[in-house]
Each structure stands twice: as structure tokens, then as C-alpha cells.
């Protein structure tokens, strides 16, 4: 079986999916199911005292899905480390999708902060999946710092632009010894396929499914996209050529 291994975690599905922005919890539940994902991401936030009964954990079957908490919204190393520790207190698995943001407008990551937080959290025993931009050197540094997976963005978070720099992703993949998961910016199934065809070990997405007109159908499309891209990568594509090359035999044509 073609499994993805991240530290001690192992999965059949290479699609990791977020739980944010769905119109209803029921819609999310159906979309997660249709995606075939085994890993779902969540965020940690202050309890809303006016509406604390409706908890998302009631809608995520932890026998079926492994929850991957994130540090979304953290702009400092300290806050990212605090959120990671709080996730562990909630009984969530001992891993973290680490995001240290650098800029509110573009949601671009702070590579320096991400690197520092990675080192600290690895020291504390967490399996760290480090979100970063598609910077070849940044990805190498995170791997060296002990990240179990490095997650370069395809495009800015929630932008749906697809993989903007396939060449960088390709080079990052060539260099990496840990799984590379393209995270963020994926808008539709073909974007996912492109990432997987490049050789990415997985794709993490949220908005592309959650805000599609029909999230359940899009989740299904993303699942197929991941599988198609993975198969195409493993199958080995033909090289691109400038000129035509006939598919039918040239010999034996009637005269």
C-alpha cells in the first residue's frame, strides 16, 4: 500500500482537510466523509461563553479521523508554542500544524519564527508539520530543525490560485527527506492534481472545499484529484516534445 508516513503517524489518504468556514457542521461532516481524508485540521480559540454547547468535536468522529491541531492566527513563537501545548491538554494527538504568521494582510508565514518554534516544539516531543512559503532554503532549514513534514504553500491561504511556483515545489521535493505536503491556496481539483503530479506527498486544503457551491461534491473531486495526481506521478509521465508523434502505426497504410 502507498502510505504516507509522518513521524509515527501513517495514512492511506494523501488528502488532509480543514474544518473551517463550512456553512453548517452537518455540511462539514458530509464533506469530510466525501473527501476520504483521514486527517482533519482544527484550530484552538477562546471559548465563546454565549455559545459553548455546540462543539465541533461532536461532529468529528475520532475513530475515523486523526485530528491535527494548528496554530493559525499566531504571530509569535511564544503564542504558537502555547497553543500547541494547549492542544495536547485537550487530548489531541501529539502533533501540530505549525503556523507562525508574519503579515496579517497576506497571511504570509514568518520563516524565522517558524524555525524557532519548530526547534522548540521538536525538543518538547511534538511531531511538527511546519507550514512555510515555497522557499527552497526555508524548507531545508525546517527539515534540519526536525520538522517531520514541511508544508510549503501552493498560493496564499484561501486564495484558490493553485500551485503558483511549480518549479520551486519540484526543487523542494528533490531535496527533501521528509514528506512534503502542499498546503494552502488550492482552489479546485486540477490544482491538487498538479501538486501531486509534481511528486508532493500530500495536499492540505480547506477553503476550496468549504466555500465551493457544493462542498460535498468538491470534496469528492479533490479526493479524485489527489488520487489521479499521485498515480500519474508514480506512473511516470512522458517527456514533453515540440513535434507530433503519431499514435497509430505508420507502416501498412493503404496506398
Amino acid at each position: 500500500m502507498d502510505k504516507i508516513k509522518i513521524g509515527k503517524f501513517e495514512f492511506n489518504s494523501r488528502l488532509f482537510i480543514g474544518t473551517g468556514k463550512y456553512s453548517t457542521m452537518e455540511m462539514m461532516e458530509k464533506a469530510l466523509d466525501a473527501s476520504g481524508a483521514e486527517v482533519v485540521t482544527v484550530a484552538l480559540r477562546r471559548v465563546n461563553f454565549e455559545d459553548s454547547k455546540e462543539n465541533i468535536l461532536n461532529y468529528i468522529d475520532q475513530k475515523k479521523y486523526t485530528i491535527l491541531p494548528n496554530t493559525a492566527g499566531c504571530y509569535t513563537v511564544e503564542d504558537a508554542v502555547r497553543i500547541t501545548r494547549l492542544g495536547r491538554e485537550l487530548g489531541l494527538p501529539n502533533w501540530i500544524k505549525l503556523e507562525v504568521m508574519g503579515d496579517e494582510k497576506t497571511l504570509m508565514p514568518d520563516n524565522e519564527g517558524t524555525l524557532k518554534a519548530t526547534k522548540q516544539l521538536v525538543d518538547e516531543g511534538f511531531t511538527v508539520l511546519a507550514y512555510t512559503n515555497d522557499d527552497i532554503v526555508a524548507c531545508q532549514k525546517l527539515e534540519k530543525a526536525g520538522a517531520a513534514s514541511v508544508m510549503p504553500l501552493g498560493a496564499p491561504i484561501g486564495s484558490g490560485q493553485g500551485v503558483l511556483n511549480p518549479n520551486n515545489i519540484k526543487i523542494i521535493l528533490e531535496n527533501a527527506k521528509v514528506p512534503i505536503i502542499v498546503d494552502a491556496g488550492v482552489g479546485t481539483a486540477s490544482d491538487v492534481t498538479v501538486a501531486m503530479e509534481l511528486g508532493a506527498d500530500g495536499v492540505l486544503l480547506n477553503t476550496g472545499v468549504a466555500l465551493a457551491k457544493d462542498p460535498v461534491r468538491m470534496a469528492r473531486a479533490m479526493k479524485a484529484g489527489v488520487e489521479a495526481g499521485r498515480d500519474a506521478f508514480l506512473a511516470g509521465r512522458i517527456p514533453k516534445k515540440l513535434y507530433a508523434s503519431a499514435s497509430s502505426p505508420i507502416e501498412g497504410i493503404i496506398k
Binding site: G20, A43, R46, S52, I56, L92
Partner: peptide, 24 residues
């Protein structure tokens, strides 16, 4: 969690109480 019962609170203590929400 196992220390919730024994952890005493004092005037002006600052608490953060967090839970899981949807996220990407």
C-alpha cells in the same frame, strides 16, 4: 486537567480557556 480540582484561584488571576474550533 487532573489538577483542575486542586488549582486554587486568586484575585486578579488571568485565565485563558480554549476549545477546538473549525480551522484549516
Amino acid at each position: 486537567r487532573e489538577n483542575f480540582d486542586d488549582t486554587k484561584l486568586r484575585d486578579n488571576d488571568k485565565l485563558e480557556i480554549v476549545t477546538v474550533v473549525g480551522g484549516g
